[in-house]
Amino acid sequence: MGRIGYILLYACLALVAAFQIFPLLWLVLFSLKDNAQIFSGSPFALPNDPQWGNYLNVWQGGIGLYFFNSVWITGLAIVLTVLFASMATFAITRMNWKLNKFVLGLFMVGLMIPIHSALIPLFSMFLSVNLIDNPLSIVLTYTTYNLPITIMILLGFYYTLPREIEEAAVMDGSSINRLFFTIILPMTTPVMATTVIINMIYNWNEFVFVNTFISSDEYKTLTVGIQNFIGQYMTDWGSIGATLVISIIPVLLAFLFFSNKVVEGISSSAVKG
């Protein structure tokens, strides 16, 4: 292929990259402007006199609380999901029992179904045990609905662990708990890191459960919080922009530092079909 061919191919790829990046670049720019600059100036002009106050205002105006809720709910659900998924994957791949394939099949149902089909019964179940408008309902649903994909990612890794490790440990009189927590679990650190990142992205971005189960402002997470918030700031573009930037910074940071793990996790989540 000639030189011109290569330049054309690069141009195509650069065009796609520009399409993927420009809306975000524009977002960051208008988050630092006031309406006068946004409505009169060129959309890609750098902000003269950047309005950092936009960020401070929205943070103090409620986004700080939503951010905090997102952090602890995301974090708690990650810990529970990865722990329960690791235990279940261990039992399915390493222990001897008849129904293991059946149970695995049951878990995998969770990968195929539209969550909206389960929403109304979930709502009435939580209502009957007083968990509506209680963040516990969110932690429980996040934990549960991420179990299937987490187990699926862990599964491949667990199958490759050599049997000799367990045999040696059991010979030495190690209990199952010691074997799992001090030998197996530490060995799965790389794949656990992948599942943590994937869980973080899913939980951080989740919308419909919070929107359905939580009504008090004090428990809302960022995705639902910014919905209400933006409603009040309908015409103040700078504040809306700042709100959106704050909400996407954590996942962008995670991507910046752990991009290979993110790529790995997203690729393996595709196999689910």
Partner: peptide, 24 residues
């Protein structure tokens, strides 16, 4: 031990995914 290790995940998935789908 098998029951203990499988229970948390199985319980959550059964109660919060499978049962709601049937209830729908």
């Amino acid at each position: 031990m098998i029951t203990l290790y499988i229970f948390p995940a199985l319980f959550l998935i059964a109660v919060l995914i499978i049962v709601p789908l049937i209830l729908t």
